[in-house]
């Protein structure tokens, strides 16, 4: 059973590795973007899919990483690896603080609290326009993206290198998710989602487990934000807006909440769908909307969720 799981997830990574040898430059760029954002979705899924907590404010964590990394290299003179580390630490701190407050609420109140915090973060980004440059955004110069690692010079402007870095991040994120989901923590999170009262009355510290899920999820988001800023040399306020809180929710729902690969598949499909639709209509979002509605009607558990229900019971 474990062999099957490893095989499937390994095959996905290998397939993505091989993709760069056959795909066009444009496809490589899109796939890079998808992989970076899939890390965001993977983290979102830990909180939403497994722990059953619907956050409407994850853009604040994505933006935390995004701006920490962008400001780190442009203003604080950090090298790229330091900026990643800095962004990750900021992600952990911000999600811990927000989590401690937001998790006092549950259900709809939790959704609203996370939404409000995220809006406050978004407005903060705009308010400090001198530093963040608002929706025009921070552009990272090419020489700020060159660094040396173990004696090698690495230039993030190289699209193939960038693709492979994104792939490494995605692989690590998938591995981390698998580890979490199959650990005691993962099972307790599912238990909390299924019946919170019962779980507390079995002697589990529900608050602590929820906070763990929240911080894991926020940290994935921050890391993804940092990767986005550094790989694509840009950090703008649109990426901190409510839209970016909704995206990971849609990606997760589309691919299948509470399946490890669902968010990855969902992110990819959504990109392809938007791309495909904008090829023949200017109302591409309407098209995507219709597809999503059909999906919710016919595959309420998302694509992989439905597959697991009908065929692959072993899918984690």
């Amino acid at each position: 059973m474990t062999a099957r799981v490893l095989l499937l997830h390994g095959a996905v990574i290998v397939a993505l590795f091989l993709l760069q040898f056959v795909a066009s430059d444009y496809a490589v760029l899109t796939a890079t973007r998808i992989m970076v954002l899939a890390v965001y979705a993977l983290g979102y899924n830990i909180l939403f899919g497994y722990a059953g907590l619907l956050s409407l404010g994850h853009a604040m964590f994505f933006a935390t990483g995004l701006y920490a990394a962008a400001l780190g290299v442009t203003r604080l003179g950090m090298a790229v690896p330091e900026a990643f580390l800095f962004a990750a630490v900021c992600g952990v701190i911000v999600s811990t603080v927000i989590g401690l407050i937001a998790l006092r609420a549950s259900g709809v109140a939790f959704m609203i609290v996370t939404l409000m915090f995220s809006q406050a973060a978004f407005l903060t980004v705009l308010y400090f326009g001198d530093i963040t440059r608002g929706d025009e955004g921070i552009v990272i110069k090419d020489d700020q993206r060159v660094f040396s690692l173990f004696g090698h010079v690495v230039n993030l402007a190289d699209p193939v290198l960038r693709y492979n870095i994104a792939l490494v991040f995605l692989a690590l994120a998938i591995a981390a998710c698998l580890a979490v989901v199959r650990s005691k923590i993962g099972h307790v999170l599912v238990a909390i989602r299924e019946n919170e009262n019962r779980t507390a009355m079995l002697g589990y510290d529900v608050k602590r487990y929820k906070l763990i899920a929240f911080v894991l999820s926020g940290s994935f988001a921050a890391f993804s934000g940092a990767a986005y800023a550094l790989l694509f040399a840009y950090a703008g306020s649109t990426l901190a807006s409510i839209q970016y809180s909704i995206h990971p929710l849609l990606w997760t729902l589309l691919g299948g909440a509470a399946t490890v690969l669902g968010p990855v598949l969902g992110t990819a499909l959504m990109f392809l769908l938007v791309d495909f639709a904008s090829g023949f209509t200017s109302a591409s979002l309407l098209f995507v909307g219709v597809v999503l509605i059909l999906l919710v009607l016919f595959f309420p558990k998302g694509i992989l969720g439905t597959l697991r229900q009908r065929l692959w019971r072993w899918l984690p």
Binding site: H187, V188, E194, N195, N197, R198, T199, L202, G203
Partner: peptide
Amino acid sequence: SIYQNLSVAENVALAAH
């Protein structure tokens, strides 16, 4: 108050930590 969507064995496994 049990875990309706989980197996009987998993219900007990959760209780046994």
